[in-house]
Design a protein around this nucleic acid. Structure first.
Lengths: 333, 333
DNA sequence: AAAATAATTGCAACCGGTTGCAAAAGACTT
DNA sequence: AAGTCTTTTGCAACCGGTTGCAATTATTTT
């Protein structure tokens, strides 16, 4: 039913090439011709078929937006920002939800079938194998919220998790806590490992402070809550660095359930600064991950890649900042 | 760089049709032929170009997933479920983020350019004009979380907001509250209007109960909080039906900030049963919207539409249920 | 073993566009 | 007004597939 190039050409009494050219910018068409074609096109309600043209041009303007984080509320914001930014650049997000069962090979196949122009992997928990698989299949890749390294195999945009671990440690030290815990996300996630690493490294300078660590099973409310309940049952630390905000909020809940107060009995600092952290009935002190910048930078990098696919992979690291709210005791002066 | 049909045909020493048929199920190919082709294809790492084939078959297996709800956490779950369900059916979600500026015409154009096979509109706040615009452009449409009517113009899957308003009212009446408020979402949203309508209708049977209503500016934490702060400043009701969960949580926060207790001083019942409602430090009594079923049913309907585009538009209404938690006083016996 | 029937294969046209190239049309010189 | 240089236009081939049709091959029937 939709009108085609040919319909317009016939109606305007011109060649198909002429019509094609009026809808291709940079092509050689006289003003007279253009007007004539546009008139006919408008009368027919024609709009060019992007898929057909992709056949010859080799560009679909489709970008695979790949993620496995469909349970962490901050990713709603991430998707919001990514989709808007892509739309503004006249690109379309083809959303791919990586479940535990999906293997890299099949997602590669899928994205190749739709000849996406590039792939944005948005995940802090996905093993690097995925991004590499996409790259090996010849697609431009940007891994947002990934683990930046000094010799990246694909473009990575994210934060320095080691540094953010140090930052958390410094903050807790400055508050005068003498017994500190790291309540991490899943032990296998590289982000968890890096944060722990930085955290311990910083605390190594303070032999007087007691340090311990443990891991929740996931970056989730329930996992954080369960792990905190376990910790509370047996000699808890004075303050914890929670793996991320949602996990920390779970921990806060556990503390409340045991009728302990925050920050009176136990302090907590999270990571992400998700919207909820600012809610007055949560009011979580946390380390802000600059989502906005990470997204913007990833998009920018993707745009560059589309122009020059051979661009060398690059790591872009953004600084985090402490957001002071109400879950740590005040600074000692 | 990617291999084409022709490459495989040459390598296998057969015609291009033969290769095409091997990858089209239901086509006539001998086993011998198929094995030969598959071998060559595997050696070359070939996978068919879905876009090219869409040209002749007229099906892209692309489904537009259109929403403007990128701020309500329940929609992360909605997207999760939709994308998974689509993937299982071998369909691909093309995500469209409707911002306040986007008009129906341009989204229609966009979806037409990519010849999507169908459009799922996932939104409780989008005016019906959007879905109609898609339908008028000849695309199969399902509006999930829309407002079911008795003479739908497109397929609509959702809940009966009037009935859920009644349900909230009945619940509050049964708890013996004598002074009840409706704290709605944006006044213009049809869902708000319907819920209020049902709410008032049910309470009309109880002249002894005092009833008032007001509206928050959005379905958001901050809007709910602000409106509740306003209400608390001047003679609040004993219990409120909050427009949705996130708004209700904002209201809870406001109540806490004024050092009042829930359900001691004020009761709250929400709507949606988002994940957070079950968090122990929130523990919101609410009306559950059966997201899972709404999504599944929408997908099912879409699948039917793909088979038979002329299917008559249908409204599917799902029942809600009360989820008892801790923000209402106990039932009077 | 020949005839009848069924299954498989290749040819060629087509899907809706793009684009290199040569012919046609305009603009500019002199 | 004829000749030269640009710009515009249409032709035709191509992008990576699909599919109706006729020719070929395999299978079944008698």
């Amino acid at each position: 039913m939709p009108k085609t190039l040919k319909d317009v050409a016939i109606r305007a009494g011109v060649s198909r090439s002429a019509v094609s050219r009026t809808f291709t910018d940079g092509a050689s068409v006289s003003d007279k011709m253009r007007r004539r074609v546009l008139k006919a096109a408008a009368e027919l309600g024609y709009s060019p078929n992007a898929l057909a043209s992709s056949l010859t041009t080799g560009r679909t303007k489709l970008i695979g937006l790949v993620s496995n984080n469909f349970h962490n509320p901050i990713f709603l914001e991430v998707f919001d920002r990514f989709t808007r930014a892509l739309q503004e650049k006249d690109l379309r997000p083809l959303l791919v939800n990586l479940t535990d069962e999906t293997d890299p090979a099949s997602s590669v196949r899928m994205l190749r079938q739709y000849s996406v122009d590039g792939v944005i992997v948005a995940s802090s928990t996905l093993p690097p194998g995925f991004s590499k698989a996409f790259r090996d299949a010849g697609m431009p890749v940007v891994h947002a919220f990934g683990r930046p390294t000094s010799s990246p195999e694909v473009h990575v945009v994210g934060i320095d998790n080691i540094e953010s671990g140090r930052m958390a440690a410094r903050t807790l030290i400055a508050r005068g806590y003498g017994d500190i815990g790291f309540l991490g996300g899943p032990e296998t996630a590289t982000s968890t490992q890096d944060r722990l690493h930085g955290f311990l490294a910083e605390l190594a300078n303070c032999p007087a402070i007691r340090v311990r660590h443990s891991f929740a099973e996931a970056y989730s409310f329930e996992a954080g809550r369960r792990e905190m309940l376990r910790l509370l049952a047996d000699d808890p630390a004075q303050a914890y660095f929670g793996g991320d905000d949602v996990l920390s909020i779970g921990a806060l809940s556990a503390i409340g359930e045991r009728n302990l107060t925050v920050p009176g009995d136990i302090g907590i600092i999270g990571l992400n600064d998700m919207e909820m952290a600012a809610w007055q009935n949560i009011n979580l002190t946390t380390i802000r991950q600059p989502i906005r910048h990470i997204v913007a930078s990833s998009i920018e990098l993707m745009a560059e890649m589309l122009k020059d696919p051979d661009r060398l992979p690059e790591s872009r690291i953004f600084a985090c900042e402490i957001v002071e709210r109400g879950t740590l005791r005040p600074l000692k002066v």
